[in-house]
């Protein structure tokens, strides 16, 4: 990317940010309700609460998302590769996936809470389920569309099974895996938010609802802001990782 294009991109993001800020300010003025505080009020609350309590809740939520994403990759990727490569595995896994994929995973949350209690395990499990099914489907489909010639070409050069995964299957699927992570990140954060507001006393979901119940709307706004920043940060991280790991698809 040239310097010029970078500064152009920065400029357009700045513009979008200012537009959103202006919209927020305008809506706060229009609605004129303490439940919808001005940007400045929220910013002050954010700066005040961040070092004392907000930071800790953010860390809890962030850790839960990262652990669930990693688990989703570790379990979903091998299963997806297996289903993509072996028709027998696919014949077994595909019907299961098709039946379960459209069911909103968050509907299982009450069951999980009953079985696992309100601690870490249930929150991580519910987010894991969201991420895992997306990764499984995406990686299976990505493997299936790899041209046969790529695998034959590497085999004809004397590659073993491991080499084929390293040099063909993994890089061929990487862009699709990033897409799957981006898609599932949104629902993962939403489900986490829901589970945190429902059970326990840690995490941004808890913090935001705590603000609501105590009618501290500035604190509630600061929590929402932190959640938004966390999502933004994770998207940025994925974007950066993809640029780093998939330089050919730029």
């Amino acid at each position: 990317m040239t310097r010029n294009r970078i500064s152009q991109a920065v400029f357009s993001y700045l513009l979008a940010f200012l537009f959103l800020l202006g919209l927020w300010w305008f809506l706060a003025w229009l609605i004129d309700n303490p439940g919808f505080p001005y940007p400045f009020t929220v910013a002050v609350a954010f700066i005040k609460l961040f070092p004392t309590s907000l930071w800790g809740h953010l860390c809890h939520s962030l850790r839960r998302v990262l652990v669930s994403l990693s688990l989703g990759l570790v379990v979903g990727l091998p299963l997806g590769f297996w289903a993509g490569r072996d028709p027998r595995a696919d014949a077994f896994l595909s019907p299961l996936i098709y039946l379960l994929y459209p069911v909103p995973k968050v509907a299982f949350l009450p069951v999980i809470l009953v079985l696992l209690g309100i601690g870490e395990a249930s929150k991580i499990l519910i987010v894991f389920l969201v991420v895992f099914s997306q990764i499984l489907i995406s990686s299976r489909d990505a493997v299936k569309k790899i041209p046969r010639e790529y695998i034959l070409a590497v085999s004809s050069l004397g590659a073993g099974r491991g080499d084929i995964y390293l040099h063909v299957i993994l890089p061929a699927c990487l862009p699709d895996i990033f897409t799957a992570l981006r898609i599932s990140l949104g629902s993962a954060i939403a489900v986490l938010f829901f589970s945190e507001s429902l059970a326990g006393n840690t995490g941004l979901g808890y913090f935001i609802f705590d603000g609501l119940f105590r009618a501290e709307y500035a604190a509630m706004g600061a929590g929402i802001l932190a959640l938004a920043l966390m999502g933004l940060g994770l998207y940025g991280l994925l974007h950066l990782l993809q640029r780093l790991l998939c330089p050919w698809s730029r």
């Binding site: 010639e149 790529y150 034959l152 590497v154 085999s155 040099h167 063909v168 890089p171 050919w248």
Partner: peptide
């Protein structure tokens, strides 16, 4: 099975796009 004594150039080359 494939042997290093025999090399094959594929139709449309089959170069790996990520390398």
């Amino acid at each position: 099975r494939p042997s290093p004594r025999v090399a094959l150039i594929f139709q449309d080359h089959a170069l790996l796009p990520w390398k």
